[in-house]
Amino acid sequence: MLINHYSVFIPISLLDSVDRQFDYILRGCHCSARSLARNMAFEGSMKDRGEVRIHESLDELSTDLADYIAELSEVSVKEHGVFTVALSGGSLINLMRKLCDAPYNKTVDWSKWYIFWADERVVAKTHVDSNYKLAKDHLFSKLPIVPSHVYPINDSLTAEEAASDYKFVIRQLVRIRVINVSNISDCPKFDLILLGMGPDGHVASLFPNHSVLEEKNEWVTFITNSPKPPPERITFTLPVINSAANVVVVATGGGKAEAASMAIDDVGPECLGLPARMVQPGVGKLVWFLDNEAASKLKRFS
């Protein structure tokens, strides 16, 4: 199959991907032909590093991301009655804001959403640095999400205490089967973990060369010396992230192009310790949402 003008050959092995992409168009996702071709071509060659979706604009990325999240929500609710989602903060929340618009605000079953944080700053919920505040202001206040289904950290505790408390909350929800358990570990299996990526390749509050990357036993841990302020944070560990059914990593802007290349391309063993590259779901699906600038140094499109 040949897409004219852009001359991207789509092998037989990508027919399923073609069906999915054209289904997005029929459902109203206005992706450009060039972006569509690039996404499909890249998807077939990224078995180890997941599926990569490259977008012409932030608006296009935001629409595709909303489509993807809504689709996962529908599947999860049909399969087991709930949709468990863990968020990070930063620009990711702004890119999710299309979920507040039609058709998603009416068609998504928001009553089945259970929301957690893959990482959080240990500050008051009203503080400008709070990931909870950011999500509440831009998402929760505009959607019919059940307030008791939202699980912020206990901001009255120290970082260490908050991490322990959050782990206890998650364990209780695993025990009553709100959150599934991974088949390959004893970790919780969230339906979706949404992550941003920093210019240094950090995800959640897992920073390069930090000892927390070696944590294998805890579900939630803490740091008191974050390279980015504020210094005290709690974060999911890599085993929990890699036990999720679906992981999405979003990166936009030229400042993240080098980290995206190191995380996605086969660029040598020196990149193996990059946190974003260590996101490798055991049996789940990993999808990267990039704009053109963040994808500009990927080998396949440079």
Rank of each mutant, 00 (worst) to 15 (best):
T84L: 02
L65N: 05
L61K: 03
V108T: 07
S57I: 07
R53P: 02
A66I: 06
S45D: 09
D109W: 01
L58C: 10
E60C: 06
S73H: 04
R97M: 15
L58R: 11
H80S: 09
E79Q: 12
N94F: 11
N105M: 13
V85A: 01
K106M: 13
E74Y: 10
N94C: 10
S57Q: 13
V75I: 13
H55Y: 09
T107Q: 13
K112Q: 12
M46V: 13
K106F: 12
A102D: 15
T107L: 14
A66S: 04
L58I: 14
V82Q: 00
M96D: 03
N105W: 09
S62V: 02
P103Y: 02
L87W: 02
K78C: 14
Y104R: 08
Y68P: 02
V85P: 02
V52K: 02
W110V: 00
K47S: 15
S91W: 07
S62F: 05
R49Q: 14
D67Y: 14
G50R: 06
V108M: 07
V82G: 04
L72G: 10
D64G: 09
I69Q: 02
I54E: 00
S91P: 10
G81S: 08
C100H: 08
T63M: 13
D59K: 10
A102C: 12
V75W: 05
E74H: 12
P103V: 07
G50K: 01
E51G: 10
D67E: 13
D101C: 12
M46Y: 12
R49T: 15
V85D: 02
E79N: 15
S57G: 10
K47R: 14
Y68R: 09
I93N: 01
V75A: 05
S88E: 04
S73T: 09
A86T: 05
L87A: 07
E74C: 09
V52W: 01
E79V: 06
N94Q: 10
R49V: 15
N105V: 14
V82H: 07
C100V: 11
W113R: 06
R49M: 15
L65T: 04
V85W: 00
W110C: 00
N105Q: 15
I54C: 00
G44P: 04
E60A: 00
G90A: 04
I93A: 00
T63Q: 12
W113E: 00
E71R: 13
G81E: 04
A66D: 03
R53K: 14
C100Q: 10
A102R: 15
L58Y: 09
W110K: 01
R49L: 15
L72K: 09
M46K: 10
A70I: 04
T107N: 11
L99K: 06
P103I: 05
L99A: 00
L95D: 05
V77D: 02
L92K: 00
M96P: 00
K112I: 07
N105D: 11
E71V: 11
A86D: 05
S45P: 12
D48W: 08
L58G: 11
E74L: 12
A70M: 02
K98N: 07
K78H: 14
S57P: 11
G81I: 07
P103D: 10
L65P: 01
L87R: 01
Y114V: 08
I93H: 01
L92A: 05
S62K: 08
L99Y: 05
